[in-house]
Each structure stands twice: as structure tokens, then as C-alpha cells.
Design a binder for these strands. Structure first.
Lengths: 249, 249
DNA sequence: CGAGGTATTGATATGTTTCAAGGAGTGTGG
DNA sequence: CCACACTCCTTGAAACATATCAATACCTCG
């Protein structure tokens, strides 16, 4: 738990950037958001942030780092169903879904903040606009899910991978986590294979294709897009689904 | 457009059953729901209910029939990202997402009702509980999306197909569209292949496996589950994600 | 009866997984 | 400081899954 003054100032910065990519947030709403946070915590890589099957009484806001929603199957394989970055209200879902049907795990060291469900309920009863922004946040998650379904079902693996890189780049840009065409990407290849739903070996070979085509580099934990235009074209990437336009919601 | 008296009584029945599978709906909320509907309409098979790229000023409620969300890719392939049934608030999303990033098409003759976004906004400002139920409806959509991602990425094709049948059966049961272990299923095999993200030929062969294992029959437009236990087992189907438990939300 | 959509089947081509092995980097303890 | 274990990445080959191509059968509708 860090110092309360810090909490008031910095903890909601990335959430704010996220929300502001969709609509104007009033100063009063900003201060309400600040008051929502009653505790923050850091998780190490591979630590469970939310456990499958649990019924948390709070929701988790990702302040910094990468987290993944996932589900294990009986045969031990894993599918990652979403990647979350700074500013994502990771399990706002649990506020209404109650029982977690999947787990959330830290893909990098993660800094998270907690918000009580009772406070979210109060917000939903007194702050219609802010409630709609929260709702929208989960709707964008859904839109991303749909895009992933399209990618898994009908895109080639290289287009799928390219699409994911495009999406992450645009989402990270909103919360100021890019430098030029580069961004920090902490997943291992095994984990990325679990995102795309393919084997490690095949992911590795797909990656080689994008590298040989000089579309991107991935060195250490840094991805750099070398040719945004061609990458977008290969991925048939259309960012409409991310709803990154400021308009009344 | 049908007679207003009919509209008041029957049009929201399936939506009501849907919402009531998650939480109690008060009589006042029921009458509000009735008053929301200002127009209904019937669509023929393959008619577009909502057009990709449009910015509708209303949302669409499916009263009866099957509809699909889909996206076409440049090479002409299609991926269906969701199947909607009676009682689904099909594009409640557009209320906050504004621009449709995908289309919605009738998979069977569909009876739909329209709700103005301005009325939804009023609801969101005066009816917190009803708003949360609407929000929940979209969250369940998201949970279904995640389950589809898992199925596409990590389940065998026959398990994927079995899982879909399990899911549809449980959803249709809630809105009273099953008879024993049978339900009406109007998709063609081409369309079902677009749901699973596989080729028609392979879908057909996968289907034979389930038929030969005597797990189900699909004759005409009627699917009958012959062995619910074994089907569920093959699919590793756990209905938690459908949130079909009545509790305060 | 013919036309068009739908389902089925077999053969072949392509995509993807699995198995297996090696290499590169990192941290640790003797 | 080196040897070792460990994780992660890379590569090749063989086994398996899935797509594509092609042909036929069936049905409904006009």
C-alpha cells in the first residue's frame, strides 16, 4: 500500500487517458474516480491477480504492466482471451457477473488498484455519465473479443499476429506507453502462442515471416514496428472497433 | 408494425425471460420496458438488420428468430462472431459504441423491436438497476465471446461444435425455445462453418463424428441432443459464464 | 422438367502440431 | 571464475489436421 497522496494523484492517470479517448471526463468525475481507489498493490510476474471461480467484492484497475485473462482446459492447454494494459479496468466485469469464469494473471510486474463493488454500485446510482463510461469500457473489451474471434477464425496466422501488434500499438499509444513505433512487450513466445491459440513452434515460424518481411522487430522485451502501413495492410487492421473517438456517450 | 396492444403485452416476453435468468425484475421495470418499444418489424432470412459502418439512433431487440453478428474480410470469407436468439438485446452495444464495426443479419425470419437511444439514455439516468441489467446483458455477451475464443483456439473442432450446441441449448431453454432436448436451428452448414471458423467440408465431417457417436441429430432445422451428459463432457461445457443465476446485480 | 441451393464424399494440397534437439542468455553455488 | 541448471528461442522432420478442389446426390421451387 503506497502513500495516500500519491494515490490521489497518479493512480488513475492511465485510466483517465483511457476514458478520455472515448469522451470528455469532467473534473468532478475525475475527483470521484480518485476517491474510488482505496488500496493499491503490486504483483510479480505470473502471480494471479484474480482467481478463477472466485467472487471478488472489488474490481481491479491496472495502473501499470501487462495482465492476461485466461482459461485452462482439462488437457492442460491454456487460451488467453484478453490482454490488458495500463488504464484497463481489468475486471470491472465481476461487478455484475459476480463469479469469475476465468482467471487473470500478471504477464509483467503489475501495479493495480482496487475499487469496491459497493462504491461502483453507488456510482451507478448517482453518476449516470460515469457509469456509461464504465459500461463503454466493457463494451470495447467485447469489441476486441469479436475482433479476436475474426482473427482466430478467418485470418492467416501471420495476419492474426500482425493484427494483434497493430491493436496493442494503438491501445498503448492512448495511455502513453509507446515511443515512436516501439513499445514494451513482456510476453514470452509461449504466452503469445496462448494468445493466438497456436503452438509455440508455429508462432516462432510465423514471427520469422514478419521479421523477414521487415515489418517489425522484437528484441528483448521491445517490439518496434518498422512499416506501419504495410503491417496494417497485411493485418487488414481497421481501428474503428477500439472506439478511440471523443464524442458524447 | 403490429398493433400497439400486442406490442405492450408480448414483445418483451423473451427479453424478460432473459433478464429474469440473472436477477429479479420489478413490475415497474417491466412496464418501463414495455414503454421503451416504439416500433417492431419483421426481417426475412439473409436481410441485414444492422449495417456495418452505420450509426443507428436506436437499438434492436430480437423478439423471435436467429440473428448473427459477422464481419467480412477482404478475401470474401466471413466470420460470425455471435449468434443471437429470442430475448437478446442484439445491438445494445451501439448505444455507447456509436459506430457499428460489424453487421447483423437475420439467420431465420426475425421479429425485432426497436428502442430509441435517447430512451436508453433516460433509463441510464433514472433507472440504475435496470441499467445494470442492460449492462449485464452486454457483459454476458462478452463472456460468451471469451468462451468462443477458448473454443476456437484450444478445443478440437468436435469439442467446439459440441460446446456450441450445449451453449445454444442452455440459452434457448431460458427463453422457452426448447422442447425436451430439441430446438429449432435454422442455420445452414455453410453458416455454421462461418461460426466455427472452419471450412464447410470440415464442418460436415466433424458433424458426422458427433452423429456417429450418437450425441445428437440434426434433421431439417431441428437439433436434438441425444446424450446431454456425454455431449457436455466432450465439450467440457461449464455454464458458469452464462450467469444464469438469479441474484442481486 | 430444370435451376439453384444444400449436403455429402473422396482425393490431394496446404497448414499446423508434435517430437526432438541444439543454442543462447541468465543466475547460482562451489 | 567456471560449471551447472534453467528458461527461452530456434530449427528440422514427421505426423496429423484442415482446406481446397471436384463430383455427386438430394431437395425445393417455379
Amino acid at each position: 500500500m503506497s502513500n495516500p497522496l500519491m494515490a490521489c494523484r497518479k493512480l488513475i492517470d492511465s485510466l483517465l487517458l483511457n476514458l478520455q479517448s472515448h469522451d470528455v471526463v469532467t473534473p468532478h468525475e475525475v475527483s470521484l474516480l480518485r476517491s474510488l481507489i482505496w488500496r493499491d498493490r503490486r504483483f510479480k510476474v505470473d502471480e494471479e491477480i484474480v482467481v478463477e471461480g472466485s467472487r471478488p467484492g472489488y474490481s481491479t484497475l491496472l495502473i501499470d504492466g501487462f495482465a492476461a485473462r485466461y482459461k485452462f482446459l482439462a488437457d492442460g492447454t491454456r487460451q488467453i482471451t484478453a490482454l490488458h494494459i495500463a488504464g484497463d479496468f481489468v475486471d470491472l466485469h465481476a461487478f455484475l457477473l459476480k463469479t469469475m469464469d476465468h482467471g487473470i494473471v500478471a504477464m509483467s510486474p503489475c501495479h493495480v488498484a482496487f475499487v469496491e463493488h459497493s462504491d461502483l454500485k453507488t456510482i451507478s446510482e448517482t453518476q449516470p455519465h460515469l457509469s456509461r463510461l464504465f459500461w463503454l469500457d466493457t463494451l470495447v473489451d467485447g469489441a476486441i473479443h469479436r475482433e479476436w474471434i475474426v482473427a482466430m477464425g478467418r485470418r492467416s496466422k501471420k495476419a492474426h499476429l500482425a493484427h494483434l501488434v497493430c491493436e496493442l500499438f494503438m491501445r498503448l499509444q492512448v495511455v502513453g506507453r509507446t515511443t515512436g513505433y516501439s513499445f514494451h512487450f513482456p510476453l514470452t513466445q509461449v504466452e503469445l502462442a496462448d494468445v493466438l491459440g497456436i503452438s509455440l513452434v508455429h508462432l516462432n515460424k510465423t514471427l520469422q515471416i514478419l521479421r523477414k518481411a521487415e515489418l517489425l522487430t522484437w528484441i528483448g522485451q521491445m517490439i518496434t514496428i518498422l512499416d506501419w502501413g504495410r503491417l496494417q495492410e497485411l493485418a487488414q487492421f481497421d481501428p474503428t472497433y477500439l472506439s478511440q473517438t471523443v464524442e458524447p456517450r
